[in-house]
């Protein structure tokens, strides 16, 4: 099970990075969203995948699910959700103001 999710995380990372290297702004935004999904699945995998075990630590219980990765992912999901929505608004506004969503044209050298 761990192997499958690890490969899935890898595919998500690869797709994300491919998208982030594009010139179109919307593709980059999608890339960042995929990147955060990849990271979350990865954290999940790193906590070992077990089903049907209680998330508690008492003497006498041999096998238990680690509750910490869930807490970490939850925090991370909230953060990346917020950042992605901000990024979408910013990308929209920037496209409107600058008249382009092509990163090649958003370079801007007039300040040098």
């Amino acid at each position: 099970m761990e192997i499958i999710t690890a490969i899935l995380a890898g595919i998500l990372f690869a797709t994300a990075i491919y998208n982030m290297l594009q010139k179109q702004l919307l593709r980059i935004v999608i890339g960042t969203a995929l990147l955060s999904h990849g990271a979350h699945i990865f954290i999940f995998t790193m906590g070992r995948l077990k089903t049907g075990q209680p998330p508690i630590l008492i003497d006498g219980i041999e096998s238990y699910t680690d509750p910490l990765p869930q807490a970490l992912i939850l925090t991370s999901i909230v953060i990346s959700f917020g950042v992605t929505s901000l990024l979408l608004v910013l990308a929209y506004r920037s496209t409107q103001e600058n008249g382009t969503d092509n990163m090649e044209q958003l370079r801007g050298n007039e300040n040098e």
Partner: peptide, 29 residues
């Protein structure tokens, strides 16, 4: 205009490094 353009890049690079941070914490964990 210029602020929107530059802040976009600022946000993207920081977002990427944050995600790398989370991944690294997962490795370490």
């Amino acid at each position: 205009k210029v602020q929107l353009r530059e802040s976009l890049k600022y946000l993207l690079i920081n977002l990427f490094s944050s995600m790398l941070f989370v991944t690294t914490v997962a490795f370490l964990y």
